[in-house]
């Protein structure tokens, strides 16, 4: 949070707090998953401090789980770090997608936005960019609230897991899928976007079908492969027109209001 000093005035402060608010579903969604990570890491020999630090420094849900499993299976630090990096290759995609809207910012601001980009923060920021509500400060807020939720969840997992019992009956593990579903609607701003999303859903389920038939593909690859293929199909079959790209001019104009 040392990057907060790049927020210079009241307007940017307000945007930051608006980001914290928009990102609150992420906080909720991360609690149970962070909790699960905390429990698992401690079972595998992490001290509570190490588990919480891992979450605070890596901020990478699936990547952390994969690294943990690989470490236990292979006892190789290099293999575990590599596994988590491969799972997280999609972050390159996310950062590249956000970059047109972050032109010319200080490296310090970019460092925090980049560090705190997760699937969920990316989704909320993309939706807000589409609704012309996003700004660098709001993105910092969205990232911050997710980071706090992830650390908080992991901490709960390391200290109180055994007292909390089974939370699945309350549907809490559905918080993230539910948020994705709401985000899908938020991003479906025109017909081309809707079709692209549906194409992606079909591709993802086709990949699942193929793994059922014996294709050796881990489930964490689905998102990367699907997104690359679906976006490519969409670019090829839909005509170029202005409504497909939210322009920076439109975003900049909105920030003035």
């Amino acid at each position: 949070m040392v990057f907060l000093d790049t927020i210079r005035n009241n307007v940017e402060m307000k945007q930051f707090f608006a980001g914290l608010r928009s990102g609150f579903p992420i906080f909720l969604g991360y609690l149970p998953v962070g909790l699960a990570y905390g429990i698992l890491a401690c079972n595998y020999g992490f001290t509570p401090l190490q588990a919480v630090l891992a979450s605070a420094l890596a901020l990478s849900g699936v990547g952390q789980f994969v690294a943990l499993t690989t470490l236990v299976l292979s006892e190789s630090v290099a293999a575990s770090v590599l596994a988590s990096t491969i799972v997280n290759l999609r972050y390159i995609l996310f950062s590249a997608t956000l970059s047109p809207h972050l032109q010319g910012l200080k490296y310090r601001t970019l460092a925090w936005i980049g560090f705190s980009t997760t699937d969920e923060a990316f989704a909320i920021n993309s939706a807000e960019i589409r609704e012309l509500r996003a700004s660098p400060s709001s993105m910092m807020g969205v990232g911050a609230i997710g980071w706090i939720g992830w650390i908080f969840g992991t901490t709960l997992g390391t200290v109180g897991a055994q007292f909390l019992g089974d939370l699945s009956a309350f549907g809490i593990y559905f918080a993230m899928p539910a948020m994705y579903a709401a985000l899908f609607v938020a991003l479906a701003s025109n017909r081309k976007q809707v079709y692209c999303g549906l194409i992606a859903a079909l591709i993802a389920l086709t990949l699942y079908g193929l793994t059922r038939l014996g294709l050796g593909l881990e489930i964490y690859w689905f998102t990367v492969i699907t997104a690359l293929v679906a976006a490519t199909i969409a670019v090829l079959i839909f005509k170029d027109s202005d409504d497909s790209v939210p322009t920076e001019a439109a975003c900049a104009e909105e920030e003035v209001h």
Partner: peptide, 22 residues
Amino acid sequence: MRWLSYMPIAVMGALVATEVMI
């Protein structure tokens, strides 16, 4: 830019489909 503009909805489509159906 156009390619990237389809990325968010594609990611969401994939995530919703896998999280709900798998």
